[in-house]
């Protein structure tokens, strides 16, 4: 009686372990079949297109002209200086993310960069650290989530278009919020009650103009050479983000990259 009880238990355990193996194999099968050649998941397409059109109007009226003026009339060294300052302000967030990604030595390099550039580099205007051999990395919480998530990096949850900020997805939008929450500069200026005209206003304004002036050519290219700008940008954004995250993972896994290339070629 007891023996038969254990017997059935064992049999049950065996069938359930078979079921688990089968389930894992199926999930694994789905994961390897998910080559990223699929269309990005966009259940909010209608509201997204609505926000996209508003963003585009704002861009055409205000942001793009400023970015063009900035690119064409601001002396190149000044543009580089502004870009360096913004990069430097972002270093602490990068370092925090690198710690979370399990790479404290890289985080130490990032903090060393921050210290060198903030002092010798005159508040980050000059990127002295790079010439000292401390190379720059940029990490956000979106990358960190993508790095740990056990899915193809093309899969960042549902696609969304953020007001003003533009293309994003669930992963990257959550990442933006997390980065904002842990940003030491934001916490410090908030705690010290620094007027927004002194810090956040200029910082975000400069970020928008700098980023837009750097994406002028690429975005113009996509807009001019597409029949559906929204869809083309959605695809390009998803691919570009996936590439960044993949490079992060690839450091430990070159083989997966080669297999992905095979899969992509097979899908076509």
């Amino acid at each position: 009686m007891v023996a038969s009880f254990f017997g059935t238990m064992a049999a049950r355990a065996r069938t359930s372990s078979v079921a688990i193996v089968a389930a894992v194999a199926m999930v694994g099968g789905c994961a390897s079949g998910d080559t990223g050649a699929n269309e990005p998941w966009d259940p909010l397409e209608t509201p997204n297109r609505f926000i996209f059109s508003i963003n585009r109007a704002v861009d055409i009226i205000a942001i793009r002209p400023i970015a063009v003026l900035y690119r064409d009339w601001m002396p190149a060294p000044a543009q580089r200086g502004v870009h360096n300052v913004l990069d430097n302000l972002g270093e602490p967030v990068t370092a925090i993310n690198e710690v979370v990604q399990g790479d404290p030595s890289r985080a130490a390099t990032t903090m060393a960069r921050f210290l060198v550039n903030s002092t010798i580099g005159l508040a980050g205007i000059f990127d002295v650290a790079t010439s000292l051999g401390l190379t720059r990395t940029k990490e956000g919480a979106g990358n960190t989530v993508g790095y740990y998530a056990g899915v193809e990096p093309e899969n960042g949850g549902f696609y969304m278009v953020l007001p003003l900020a533009g293309p994003s997805n669930a992963r990257d939008a959550a990442g933006l919020m997390a980065d904002y929450a842990v940003d030491p500069f934001r916490i410090l200026t908030y705690a010290l009650n620094v007027d927004w005209l002194l810090y956040s206003g200029p910082r975000w304004g400069a970020t928008v103009v700098d980023a837009r002036s750097r994406t002028l050519f690429a975005l113009d290219d996509i807009e001019k050479n597409s029949v559906d700008y929204y869809a083309a940008l959605r695809s390009a954004y998803t691919q570009q983000r996936a590439e960044t995250i993949r490079q992060k993972r690839e450091k430990t896994n070159t083989r997966s990259e080669l297999e992905r290339r095979d899969n992509l070629a097979l899908v076509r």
């Binding site: 597409s226 559906d228 083309a232 959605r234 695809s235 570009q240």
Partner: peptide, 24 residues
Amino acid sequence: TDVKIEGVSMVMTRRSDYNSYIQG
């Protein structure tokens, strides 16, 4: 058969673009 600039495949972007246009 394809050119990828910073991880963005020209063919895949086109496919997404055309596909959406056709569906629309």
